[in-house]
Write a protein that binds this DNA or RNA. Structure first.
Lengths: 317, 317
DNA sequence: GCTGCGTCTGCTCAGATGAGCGAGTATCTT
DNA sequence: AAGATACTCGCTCATCTGAGCAGACGCAGC
């Protein structure tokens, strides 16, 4: 980084830098045109870079924190990690990013799996097009007061957009007892739909935390049940599958009352894309990813930062 | 320039661009680290450049207009062309640039030639160091009222800074008649100094225009003499040498009254650096350069632009 | 479903490039 | 003035890189 440089050298450096970086000429070309050796050209360019005459900016694309995404991906060994800036306005940005990701990742050979979930519904609402692939429903629906109807139709809506075959059913996610749940599972429509679960190659799912307000499942059960489940080590839930801090599916009494894919089936899906953010969910997301239930993650910068704070540092390469 | 791009691709592009442009990793390296082909890396980088994710700025160094310098150099086939921004504040900036250029260009094998000149005095005032080389005075001095003494000492000051041998003399530049001038030229001190002129390899000189106020020589002679000289086609003056619009030295009656190097001697100096600017001097500068009296030029942006307006366009390469 | 078209991917090979070396030269010290 | 030191320059050789090409894949029309 030679600070002292004569005006001739400076003018030369500028000319070389312009030709190389703006006009795209090769160093050999420049050397020939200016009558200097290609080594001199290379050294001038190095100096120009070192002393700030040439400035290169990488602009993070709008609506995406590429650097955090990459760090998160490396830290967890994720297939894809997409981080949108901020946290407050995360809801729609995350959904949009997830929809884009889905569109990018899906091939005509894939089979898409979808659970009932508010987050997933948001994602599907952002989809305008999809390959003509089969769509498989992964679990029953929870209809909350005030938004019955449309939101339980996530899978049908996705299937309509795709135009491919759909394997959907009408059934609640949680029953009052194991017997009712069993009966539903034996119902032809349910059984036929769930029979296609092993063919699913890509699923997009929300992640719930096992705390009040952290998951629709958690909120839907009694205080007593919630406590019982918590005492078995459950920290989170995905599409009706409960899992502990190690991301291991946990079978509890509640599991028997749920109409959804099994933990083993979830784990067998090759590419599970999780869409989740919020401070309350950090532990659950961390567990799901570490446990291998999730292969790709779409989240907010705040959540990603919190995850990285507890995650192993990225390797150096 | 593929505008549509999924988030994964975008994140990848960002990562690749960061590694390549900011960390300086080779494309092969990046390809290996990210598990993609080097061709993909190259294409991502091309796209990143094309769609503005990577932005490269060439910052013109402060106090120097590199682009104009280069254009001026090409247009006139100059060895060195240095253009400082603006025109108003040109005086000191030009002097500084010339001093820097001199320092950069001079080698211990050179012999420096200097005329009396206000511009050259400014340049020497900016010099703090010089190689230990001989310094040769090129012409007699004109002492203006109010600044006698120091300013005629240009050559001595330069020699003191250099620390090498000096070949200086005390004599006025213009005498009242040819006889007085001849006598002075025969004076031992003058003759000995001028005998070294053929050894001069680098000279730094001002350029005067043959209009009132355009040159100290022009201002020092009578109106009648000025008109006579003008009628012989003289447009400018350098260190006592008068020249016409083609840059050809002109011998007039005035020439015989001047104690200075001859036009032939001036032309024989391998590298004459001219320091000159101002709208009035454009014609004179143009003539001197085209005539081959000047090989390098230090000037202002306004003057350079005016010169370029009348000069042949730069060749394309 | 089959075929043509446009796009994307990775390959070959020639030319471009970087790391390190040794010679020549300027600068500093004694 | 002479030697030591630091610097710049251009070279060689191994590696990297770009242009163009061929095959694979997805898409639209019959």
């Amino acid at each position: 980084m030679n600070e002292r440089r004569g005006p001739t050298e400076t003018v030369l450096m500028d000319a070389v830098a312009r030709r190389h970086y703006l006009r795209g000429e090769s160093k050999v070309e420049i050397a020939g045109a200016l009558g200097i050796s290609r080594f001199k050209v290379a050294r001038l360019l190095d100096d120009a870079l070192a002393c700030g005459v040439v400035r290169i900016d990488i602009l993070s694309p709008p609506g995406l924190d590429a650097e955090l995404s990459e760090r998160l991906r490396r830290a967890y060994g994720l297939r894809y990690a997409i981080v949108v800036p901020g946290e407050a306005e995360g809801r729609s940005a995350v959904a949009q990013a997830a929809a884009d990701l889905l569109l990018e990742v899906l091939t005509p050979a894939d089979v898409l799996g979808l659970p009932w979930s508010r987050s997933v519904s948001d994602v599907v609402n952002r989809l305008t097009t999809l390959p003509a692939i089969p769509v498989v429903q992964l679990c029953g629906g929870l209809v909350l007061a005030g938004e019955e109807g449309s939101s339980s139709d996530v899978v049908r809506r996705a299937a309509r957009i795709a135009g491919g075959p759909n394997h959907v059913f009408y059934a609640p996610l949680i029953l009052d007892d194991a017997e009712s749940a069993g009966a539903l599972r034996r119902l032809a429509s349910v059984r036929d739909a769930l029979a296609h679960v092993p063919t699913v190659t890509v699923a997009i799912m929300g992640v719930g935390a096992w705390v009040p307000g952290g998951s629709t499942v958690c909120d839907a059960v009694s205080d007593r049940t919630r406590a019982e489940v918590a005492s078995t080590g459950v920290v989170g839930e995905m599409g009706g599958v409960l899992f502990d801090a190690g991301g291991r599916p946990v079978d509890s009494e509640l599991s028997a009352r749920i109409v959804a894919i099994t933990g083993a089936q979830l784990r067998a899906i090759p590419n599970v894309i999780a869409v989740a953010h919020g401070a309350a969910k950090v532990t659950a997301i961390d567990a799901a990813v570490r446990g291998g239930l999730v292969h790709s993650l779409v989240t907010t910068a705040a959540t990603a930062t919190a995850l990285l704070a507890g995650a192993p540092l990225p390797s150096t390469n």
